[in-house]
């Protein structure tokens, strides 16, 4: 392969790629908020002693984890709007919203597993001490179990957040104008592939490497505090 790197062309497309990157980061951040909150509820739902809560929750988690994000995305964006019996506001969402909802729900199922591991790592004695103090179950969760479980869940959650960021470009398949969408559009218009995809890759590295380093530090810190 013989090609040349055009610095002027790179400088010209860089601002557009940055705008695309902001969209990708925004999708990821909103998706993370959904995954963090919904994941906790799914973890609690799965542990519920009410079978009508725990079984559907477990089934939902398994279903989402066992199907690819891209299929879920296409389902939300292309298949759901064809359910004409349902109100339109429920079935037809803009690409940007569809993307962060699909990303958030998909990773909420993984996050729920991280929470579950954190919850199960809290010793049984902590539950028993809460019983001897006659704490209500809600207080036990809020004041005793979750403050210990959540820090232990943070390292795996951090890894999922980095993975979410790397999955966010899938949104280009449903026209979310993130960095990959911009790179493809640039390639189509200019017939140059090297600069847009190289710069897009470098932009990803610029965010994901510091994020991964932060997660490693977090892992070491949590391991240290758990000693």
């Amino acid at each position: 392969m013989q090609t040349t790197w055009d610095w002027d062309f790179s400088a010209e497309i860089f601002p557009r790629l940055m705008e695309g990157m902001l969209v990708t980061v925004a999708v990821t951040l909103i998706g993370i908020v959904i995954a963090v909150i919904l994941g906790l509820f799914l973890a609690l739902g799965r542990r519920s002693n009410q079978p009508w809560i725990s079984y559907p929750t477990a089934w939902f988690i398994e279903f989402i984890r066992s199907t690819p994000l891209l299929i879920q995305l296409f389902f939300f964006y292309y298949a759901l709007p064809q359910a004409r019996d349902l109100p339109r506001w429920l079935t037809t969402w803009p690409a940007f919203i569809t993307m962060f909802v699909a990303l958030g729900v998909h990773y909420a199922c993984y996050a729920s597993e991280a929470y579950r591991a954190g919850i199960e790592s809290v010793p049984k004695g902590q539950w028993e001490a809460s019983t001897t103090l006659n704490l209500k179950i809600k207080t036990t969760w809020r004041s005793v179990i979750l403050p210990q479980a959540i820090p232990r869940s943070l390292p795996p959650l951090g890894n999922y957040f980095v993975a979410m960021f790397k999955d966010a470009p899938i949104g280009s398949a449903i026209t979310v104008q993130g960095v990959l969408f911009v790179a493809r559009a640039t390639q189509s218009a200019s017939f140059r592939s090297v600069e847009p995809y190289t710069l897009a890759g470098l932009l990803f590295l610029a965010v994901s490497i510091p994020a991964a380093m932060f997660v490693r530090r977090l892992e070491r810190r949590v391991a240290y505090e758990s000693d």
């Binding site: 004695g125 001490a129 006659n134």
Partner: peptide
């Protein structure tokens, strides 16, 4: 149960 309390071998303090 509010009339009863228990102390454990392994303390079970909230860390």
């Amino acid at each position: 149960r509010s009339d009863i309390s228990m102390v454990f071998q392994h303390f079970n303090l909230f860390p």
